[in-house]
């Protein structure tokens, strides 16, 4: 009954079939890239499959609360990056980005040493998706909501 179909409807069906095939192919390709296209390893990846000692890799996770320490030389810092499942100690000397602090996200570029410590050459701070004004950060959620409602 294809002949009963108007040309424009025939074209529409063709375009839609082509689009669906294309979308499926593209998303499959992106899905297959899942492990290769990640920007960093999380600590549990790194402890399960440690990279070769001289291979430069990136490690990303949360800076564990209370783990950040400055060494006696004043420029070297040590802290622990964790993802809730595994913990990797990191050492770094240099200037840290403004947003780098405990209990916050970090991406470290460097090498995993034979001492199981990650020696970072560069530190990048990872911001989370929350945006909160300074005045509201100490309040509880209910207080904040009330303040916002009052100032509206």
């Amino acid at each position: 009954m294809a002949n009963a179909l108007k040309p424009k409807h025939q074209r529409l069906v063709l375009v839609i079939i082509a689009l669906v095939a294309l979308l499926a192919a593209g998303l499959l390709a992106a899905w297959a890239l899942r492990n290769q296209a990640s920007y960093f390893y999380v600590p549990s990846d790194m402890t399960a499959h440690p990279p070769a000692p001289d291979r430069a890799v990136r490690l990303g996770g949360m800076v564990e609360k209370g783990s950040l320490k400055t060494m006696p030389d004043g420029v070297t810092i040590r802290f622990i990056v964790s993802d809730g499942k595994a913990r990797v100690p990191v050492s770094y000397s240099g200037i840290v980005p403004d947003l780098f602090k405990e209990d916050s996200g970090v991406v470290a570029e460097g090498k995993l040493g034979s001492d199981r410590t990650f020696h970072a050459a560069t530190l990048l701070a990872k911001h989370d998706e929350r945006y909160v004004p300074r005045e509201l950060q100490e309040m509880t959620k209910a207080q904040a909501r009330q303040t916002v409602a009052e100032t509206k």
Binding site: G26, E129, R130, Y131, V148
Partner: peptide
């Protein structure tokens, strides 16, 4: 859709989406 999902599928330095359907991690201010 790849741009949209890139921060969910892959570990990235860019933070995950702040505004998702019916939910926002951005303060009303």
């Amino acid at each position: 859709p790849i741009i949209n999902r890139s921060v969910v599928w892959w570990n990235s330095l860019h933070q995950p989406p702040s505004i998702t359907l019916g939910k926002s991690a951005i303060d009303p201010a």
